[in-house]
Nucleic acid binder design. Structure first.
Lengths: 210, 210
DNA sequence: TCCGTCATCCCCCAAAAGTGCTATTGATAG
DNA sequence: CTATCAATAGCACTTTTGGGGGATGACGGA
């Protein structure tokens, strides 16, 4: 039996949802509220297993809501439920640990499905949401921004990042320290930096290495 | 009409898939191969709209495959298709721009669904996969794991990462170079590193700074 | 063939960094 | 009231680094 708590400021919609869920044999709506101001208290008292959470609400919205809930009750499943679909909010919810993300145009049947799904450890999202999540993965991916470093220079830089001294690098490649020095000079010039620390930071931030 | 290309090294499975898809009125299987060695050429010639891609294949596997395809033909949809696997590979595929991720235990009906879905811009994944994707979002936001650095040490480290010399750091904080030196000594010890480069790398990798 | 790039090596030299100690002060926790 | 800790500072000493030169052979494209 799923114990469901609903946060949704549109009263009519909230009531429809309650009716819908109460019609299911294995679902019990333990409460419904129009904002998240007292979410901690409410969750503590009503002990839901699944929360349906609207994002846009007066007072404390769903993003703060999911954060609070997940911080205090990480075992409670939170399903975001919204018309809004800008990437910012989506990401904020996901980072806060929301377990799923539904759009309001989702059909009642799918909502039921999603609740079952999330309660059994899944992470329901509409294909649209899923697509955007994947999208952000690609964006976060490095663009091989070309600094014009030669293969050797890359190898040297890699060891520098590992904290090797010039001497150690020279030894690793069986070349002279002077050569390492030359490579580093060229690297610094190409990267427009003045010392190793800066080069290391820049290289990592550009994701030249992981 | 979807033009489908299949990469799957298990011949029996590949044939089953072909049969399944050919049975659909709006799907056409344009080819099937056991590895990705010539994937660019094949995609160019066969012009699929959707590719079903196994991950584990002899020769070039599906991860290299999806990378190649997405680099040369970003408009072609790629559906990864695999037995359950480690997070590493999953993430690698997603970063490479895979459009969806199916488990081999997925039912034929769902496979059909997924193809329709991906072709219309969605991103089908099983709830299981979705859960793991969300999981990584939470993990990626891990809190600055505590090295026990004091506030001052953090400030000093931050400037070090910017490439400032001891002298510059000292000047910035109106303290003596010897003090900066002391802080750095403590920082290196706490971080278990031996020099600035290593400290910078470690700090950035731990996301102590961005 | 000539020119450019890469990788290699060398010199000099000053500045910077790192190591190992010690030590004072002020705040804070027990 | 002490013990700890953060922040400060100093000194001696060695090693490493960065910036300025210059040089050579190999390789490849114009």
């Amino acid at each position: 039996m799923h114990q469901i708590l609903i946060y949704e400021d549109n009263e009519r919609l909230r009531n429809s949802l309650e009716l819908l869920l109460k019609g299911m044999p294995n679902m019990n709506v333990v409460g419904g509220f129009g904002n998240c101001d007292k979410v901690i208290e409410q969750v503590k008292n009503l002990m839901p297993t699944v929360i349906l959470m609207d994002i846009d609400m007066p007072g404390e919205g769903g993003i703060i809501g999911v954060e609070k809930v997940k911080r205090h009750f990480p075992e409670v499943f939170v399903l975001m439920f919204t018309v809004f679909d800008d990437d910012e909010r989506l990401m904020a919810c996901l980072r806060s640990g929301a377990n799923g993300y539904l759009l309001k145009k989702t059909s009642p049947l799918q909502i039921i499905d999603a609740i079952e799904n999330v309660a059994s450890g899944g992470a329901p999202m509409t294909p649209e949401i899923a697509r955007r999540v994947l999208e952000t993965f690609k964006v976060e991916r490095k663009i091989p921004s070309d600094l014009g470093l030669t293969p050797r220079e890359m190898q040297v830089l890699e060891l520098l990042i590992k904290g090797h001294t010039y001497k150690m690098i020279a030894h690793d490649f069986s070349i002279s320290v002077e050569t390492v020095r030359s490579h580093l000079k060229n690297i610094y010039e190409k990267m427009h930096v003045n010392n190793g620390n800066e080069a290391v930071a820049k290289a990592l931030r550009m994701r030249l290495f992981e």
